[in-house]
């Protein structure tokens, strides 16, 4: 395996539940190499989304280390993580989360705008990405004018806008029918490989998980082979 672009070591996350404390993550170890695709499966409530949020720097672990490339992300404040997040990683969500007032192209370009870059190069990349996800002629369509699968393609293009080292996808096919879901996973894997971006795919679907280069499972707060 190549050098890790994303590494978590001994991650622990506790949640208070009444008079007890739930330990959702119990020393999770994870290392993802550049361009590698990893799937994480697990039952509902097993902590998959919590793990993804911690890996994205949206949430902080109670213990453990998180490395974004060579940077110790666990030592950064939430503000510092926010400032670095847009350039380091892209996220794809189950519910797409497109901005309804922006058309498809503007949604993709928004990824660059947020990190302060929206010049000619970024506009060119928007066009390239839309073409790559098969929506070259739908750039001026609002999210409400797109199907679920098309919206998720826009979300994939947006996640890749800033040439991220890592894509974190949280059940990206959860709201799609099987055939559309398959095409989205194929697109995600293909485009990540082309862009040499690592992919962490959280999914319930074993068939989708099998398409990644490494399958992991989260069980009882600990990571194992899937």
């Amino acid at each position: 395996m190549s050098e890790s672009v994303l590494r978590a070591s001994g991650l622990r996350k506790l949640y208070p539940s009444g008079d007890r404390t739930l330990e959702v993550l119990q020393g999770v170890e994870l290392a993802v190499g550049a361009g590698e695709s990893v799937s994480v499966r697990g039952e509902s409530g097993s902590g998959k989304s919590t793990l993804l949020n911690i890996l994205a720097g949206l949430d902080r672990p109670d213990a453990g280390e998180l490395w974004w490339g060579s940077e110790a992300a666990h030592q950064l404040s939430l503000g510092e993580l926010t400032a670095r997040r847009g350039r380091f990683l892209g996220m794809v969500f189950q519910s797409y989360y497109l901005i309804p007032e922006l058309d498809a192209a503007a949604n993709v370009l928004m990824g660059a705008r947020v990190v302060g870059r929206a010049g000619a190069a970024e506009r060119d990349r928007t066009a390239t990405l839309l073409q790559r996800v098969g929506l070259a002629d739908r750039g001026h369509h609002l999210p409400s004018q797109l199907s679920g699968g098309e919206r998720q393609r826009v979300a994939v293009a947006r996640a890749l806008m800033n040439h991220p080292a890592v894509i974190l996808a949280d059940e990206p096919t959860g709201n799609l029918d099987e055939r559309t879901g398959d095409s989205i996973i194929d697109l995600l894997l293909g485009i990540c490989a082309e862009e040499k971006a690592a992919l962490v795919l959280v999914t319930h679907n074993p068939a989708h998980a099998k398409k990644t280069s490494r399958q992991l499972a989260l069980k009882n707060g600990q990571m194992g082979h899937g």
Binding site: A56, L58, T82, A83, R84, R85, G86, I99, G111, V114
Partner: peptide, 11 residues
């Protein structure tokens, strides 16, 4: 959407 902007790197 506000959460998304944060996830995209918006402060």
């Amino acid at each position: 959407e506000i959460g998304l902007l944060g996830a995209m790197g918006g402060g």
